[in-house]
Design a protein around this nucleic acid. Structure first.
Length: 286
DNA sequence: TCGTAGACCCGCTGCA
DNA sequence: GATGGGCGGGTCTACG
């Protein structure tokens, strides 16, 4: 569920909470979130204890907390993962999966995940960039992100635009919400062939994705429900600014045509039929 | 015809 | 009862 802006909000919220603190105890309440850790839940807990954390980092939707020793705790929030900061004696919220206690014995970090598509693992030598996510492309917020290069790669793919925007090995951080919002702003149908886009148009799409996510970040991200909140439990407000996502049957802000929801890749795509026309057959087939 | 790379789709899991 | 923001891996497909 969290896409780049939501993960960035969480990263920024974690920074003052974890930076410079030393873990004294880690408790894994459900094994699934640490399923990628080879040593299992007990090994995970034992290997983290005693480590000192530094400022959290992010690439796309992945988050990692480097340790002073050069390793890192790599985290993906999946569909429903969240970090919360609570006093150690506060009652556990439903679906709390992992507890992190620190040496100063004050606030406790808690990982909560309803559906448990997310997970975390110790990444050896992963402080700079965990090798587990070396295949994840730069996101549009990365200083080295080059829209021209990514646009060329995008146009070379024998695929369609929304699939490619969701392809985390091409450009990371974009999920279903921001893909739909980007395509609405660009007046593009999700089945538009990449090869049909000019270089300039492809760069425009990538720049627009960055703009949408920047605007969302300024609002604290997109929250539809309690599944996405920051480390203090606060919701983001960008859902008020969404043009198409989740707005089935409501009028398009641009032309008034009712927004439609259509099945796409086992989920949904929202678009305005008035200003995002289905590409002509010659552009769909190849 | 075969091997490889890229594209695509299923399944995971759980509750509001 | 339907729907949901995610990803990895198995399978399919296209191309050289």
């Amino acid at each position: 569920m969290p896409e780049l802006p939501e993960v960035e909000v969480i990263r920024a919220g974690l920074a003052p909470v974890v930076s410079g603190r030393t873990l004294t105890r880690v408790r894994v309440l459900h094994p699934r979130p640490v399923r990628y850790h080879p040593a299992g839940p007990q090994g995970f807990a034992a290997e983290l204890a005693g480590r000192t954390l530094t400022e959290p980092r992010r690439r796309g939707k992945y988050l990692w907390i480097p340790f002073e020793d050069g390793d890192a705790l790599l985290v993906h929030l999946g569909m429903s993962g969240q970090f919360r900061v609570d006093m150690p004696d506060a009652p556990l919220r439903p679906n709390t999966r992992v507890l992190f206690d620190f040496d100063d014995d004050s606030r406790q970090l808690r990982f909560i995940d309803q559906r448990m598509f997310g997970g975390m693992q110790l990444s050896a030598g992963g402080a700079e960039l965990p090798p587990q996510i070396s295949h994840i492309a730069l996101d549009p917020f990365a200083p080295d992100f080059d829209p021209e290069t990514v646009a060329r790669r995008l146009r070379a793919k024998r695929s369609t635009i929304k699939r490619s925007l969701l392809d985390q090995t091409l450009v990371s951080g974009i999920g279903n919400i921001y893909a739909d919002e980007t395509l609405w702003r660009c007046r593009l149908h999700y089945e538009q062939r990449n090869a049909s886009l000019s270089q300039r148009r492809a760069v425009e799409v990538l720049s627009t994705a960055r703009e949408v996510m920047t605007a969302s970040l300024a609002q604290g991200g997109t929250s539809f429900d309690a599944l996405y909140v920051d480390v203090d439990g606060a919701a983001g407000y960008f859902s008020r600014n969404l043009a198409v996502y989740g707005r089935q049957d409501q009028p398009c802000d641009r032309c008034g045509t009712p927004i439609v929801r259509e099945p796409f890749m086992n989920r949904s795509s929202y678009r305005c039929p008035g200003c995002q026309h289905r590409p002509r057959r010659s552009l769909v087939a190849q």
